[in-house]
Design a protein around this nucleic acid. Structure first.
Lengths: 342, 342
DNA sequence: ATGAAAGCGCTAACAC
DNA sequence: GTGTTAGCGCTTTCAT
């Protein structure tokens, strides 16, 4: 009743297990006579033989499995960012003949993702999609443990550290600079920045770029015009209310750090009966899969999430197949898309 | 440089491999003395030991891995139906301690999904999400091969056959009946049905229910009011144009077989400056994740996709863990949601 | 309590 | 060409 094995075929064909293995793995091998080979194939067919990949992987010391880790509480599959990244990852895996193992987040509260990963060595390597819930400290600890355990990996999206790891992200400082350049060229001087938590890599890098460019133009990003949130709408609303309270200092443009905040801004504008760009210009750093459907279409710098996924997957596989290659660190170019909000 | 093994720990601790295995797998075992156990844990920590799950799975004859197969051309992660199903699957896997293996569709044209699956015996079982591109024949052949190869599996969403397999779906015939009942009770007599290909299980079952209910009410579902499409908007438009061409026979209500078609109807109404329910009532069978955002909100029968995923995953795991249990076949109840289109 | 040894199903090195 | 042999890293009897 159990599935058939190489030994079953070998027995029936009257040949050795090795012969069966060789024949089945290479139709055109010369190491097995044509007659035997045909017999082997015939019997394999009869027995509906399918190899035990576990045994194969153990013997070959590689499973062609890539593990995916997304440190996130919410269901990952509803997240458009993740969906885009996964599609990119898939495209690379297809091309290079790997499959994807998605770890189920453990329900046990005491166990961290890290422990779990270390316990799950099915895979040849691991791919991390860092999210808003990854602090710099979390990430650095993870990196340390992975290196200790000699696990090959790559990370994508927002890493803030200097350790030599395979990483693909986007140059947020450059986005920040580009944002200011764009806005200032269109006459804006009082620019506000609506962002996430102040500890996030993305926030820090964007801010760096924004400040640098403002200084270049002889302008200033006022502290009260930097609004950090926990991605909470109420909080975002009260920040913007404060911005708009005084007619005089009111910002003429707002730059949003990501899609979620952009949507908060849209909601706010609707609630307060404001419109862009008439009352205030809106510019954003966004993921096209999320922001693509918004009306009016936002003017935005789009992050190449699909490509990030592709490249990150390639990086892990390279790390697996060419262990001598030093870790790569790539910042992908972003794209600009003019919409109707500036 | 390689990852450490049980034997490394055993050597350093001066104990047998078996002792290490036992100690590491059960902190409270009495089969290893406390002193040795502590030493073993200390050394494991020092060496950053993490077990080779491949070897473990081979020895235990189970990997706690579930394979997912989605016969679909497009990237699966952008599909809201799949995303919902995956979330349901994940929730079961978390609860029962399994991980998910997502097979990369093979680029090689000659190879079918089936061959690939049979070659990928990493998993303890397989979960199939049948889609619009699965013909009854495809599915039956797949089932046959899986049984031959003694692979445990479950299928979800639209299976049209009698073979005793683990299956979870929704009672489309009942939806069809409910649709007619709802519409007739609101005074509709000329009802049109916009659907997908006539060979799809869903189409067939819906039609069954629609017809049955119409007959019960002494009405008739006119052949010209059954519109089958390849999910192509142009085609859908011309079908509806034909329906609306003649003032006299014009349907007073349209029932859409799924979300895609519902969107075609919305687009059509906008293009032709029609409105629901004024010009025609719209009722649909839909997936809430897809149709939830539509405006006006559609009146619809919603399919419990998340629950289908959950249950399907439970079915495979049951099939794995309780092999003697006969295959289950469950049709989940749908929900009705009154919107503004009827 | 502890270790030796067999075995999971396969690959690969090596002899013949 | 073909078969024998020795692993891959782990679990699990079964003696001691």
């Amino acid at each position: 009743m159990a599935a058939s094995r190489l030994s079953d075929i070998a027995k029936r064909a009257g040949v050795s297990i090795a012969a069966v293995s060789i024949a089945l793995n290479d139709r055109n091998t010369t190491r097995v006579s044509a007659a035997k080979r045909d017999l082997i194939y015939k019997i394999a067919e009869e027995l509906s033989y399918s190899p035990n990949e576990l045994a194969k992987a153990l013997a070959e010391k590689r499973s062609r499995l890539l593990g995916l880790v997304v440190p996130m509480r919410d269901p990952i599959f509803f997240n458009q960012f993740i969906a885009q990244a996964l599609s990119g990852i898939q495209s690379t895996l297809m091309r290079r003949g790997y499959n994807l193992l998605i770890f189920s987040p453990s329900g046990r509260p005491g166990r961290t993702t890290r422990d779990q990963i270390l316990e799950s060595r099915f895979t040849d390597g691991l791919l991390f999609i860092n999210t808003r819930s990854c602090s710099a400290r979390d990430i650095n600890e993870t990196i340390h443990e992975l290196n200790e355990a000699k696990i090959r990996f790559a990370m994508m999206n927002s890493y803030y550290g200097r350790a030599p790891v395979n990483y693909v992200g986007v140059d947020d400082a450059a986005i920040g600079e580009a944002a200011i350049r764009y806005l200032v060229q269109r006459g804006h001087k009082r620019i506000a920045f609506l962002s996430g938590e102040s500890t996030l890599p993305t926030h820090i890098h964007l801010l760096q770029g924004l400040r640098r460019a403002m200084i270049d133009f002889g302008l200033e990003l006022k502290p009260e015009h930097i609004g950090c949130t926990h991605y909470d709408q109420t909080q975002a609303f009260s920040i913007m209310d404060a911005w708009f309270a005084r007619k005089k200092d009111r910002p003429t443009a707002i730059f949003a750090a990501d899609d979620t905040l952009l949507v908060h801004i849209y909601d706010y504008m609707e609630a307060r009966r404001l419109s862009a760009p008439g009352d205030v210009a809106i510019l954003a750093r966004a993921n096209s899969a999320n922001a693509g459907g918004l009306r009016p279409r936002p003017t935005a710098f789009f992050i190449p999430v699909f490509e990030m996924g592709q490249l990150a997957a390639d990086m892990v596989i390279d790390a697996i197949e060419k262990p001598e290659r030093p870790p790569q660190r790539v910042l992908l170019p972003f794209t600009f898309s003019a919409g109707n909000t500036t």
